[in-house]
Amino acid sequence: MTWCAYLTHPEVLIDPDVPVPEWGLSDTGRERAAKATVLPFAKDIRQVISSAEKKALDTAQVFSGRLRVFQRSLPFLHENDRSATGFLPPEEFEQTADLFFADPHHSVRGWERAIDAQDRIVNGVKSALRHIPEEDPVLFVGHGAVGTLLMCHLMAAPISRHHDQRRCGSWYRFEKSWLMSQAGRNLAWTVL
């Protein structure tokens, strides 16, 4: 098997009156998304699979459009379901996210449980890879929280915000075979 990369969307246009899944990239976010097309691995990518949320789709389309690779979206890559609270001011959001990671077996304020979001993304990535030739490198484009949950699984580490990205628009690379392995690997986010 070959490798994959996981990329999170960069900066978005935050609008409290628009549902979070419908937020698109800001101008800065689009500029940073374009940086992904010159990463060392970019020319080897054969397929881009993204979340169906607008900010992830925008990021995937920048990448796939510039490098002319096949792109599709799948619902299992969406961010943890936070619709119970909708938009939260930044400080309140960060406090709630801390609780989401700290207590993965319980719902925080009606949010999807972290353990369920992790199961969804891990099984979804495994399922997507079953339909892609083993030798084809794949770029998954999604969101920070579920990307961190996937990373925790790949490292065989407990769910923890300690492994969260420091800035949106970050990425890591992993071997496809690690999804099936019980052995933990060391991974770290790299900022675009």
Rank of each mutant, 00 (worst) to 15 (best):
A102G: 13
A102M: 02
A102H: 01
D103S: 15
P104L: 04
P104G: 03
H105P: 00
H106I: 07
H106E: 10
H106F: 07
S107D: 06
V108M: 03
V108L: 03
V108N: 06
R109Q: 12
G110H: 07
G110E: 05
G110F: 03
W111K: 02
W111Q: 00
E112V: 04
E112S: 03
E112T: 06
R113N: 01
R113W: 05
R113T: 09
A114P: 04
A114R: 04
I115G: 00
D116G: 00
D116T: 08
D116M: 00
A117D: 05
Q118A: 07
Q118K: 08
Q118V: 05
D119A: 13
D119Y: 05
D119H: 10
R120M: 02
R120P: 06
I121R: 03
I121V: 15
I121C: 05
V122G: 03
V122L: 05
N123R: 14
N123V: 03
N123Y: 00
G124D: 04
G124T: 05
G124Y: 00
G124F: 00
G124W: 00
V125G: 01
V125T: 03
V125S: 02
V125R: 03
V125H: 00
S127K: 10
A128V: 02
A128P: 01
L129A: 07
L129R: 10
L129I: 11
R130T: 13
R130P: 00
H131S: 11
P133R: 15
P133S: 13
E134G: 15
E134V: 13
E135L: 12
E135W: 13
E135G: 12
D136Y: 15
D136R: 08
P137C: 10
P137A: 13
P137N: 12
P137K: 11
V138T: 15
V138S: 10
V138F: 08
L139V: 12
F140S: 12
F140N: 12
V141N: 10
V141Q: 09
G142K: 12
G142A: 10
H143I: 08
H143R: 11
G144M: 07
A145G: 07
A145I: 13
A145F: 09
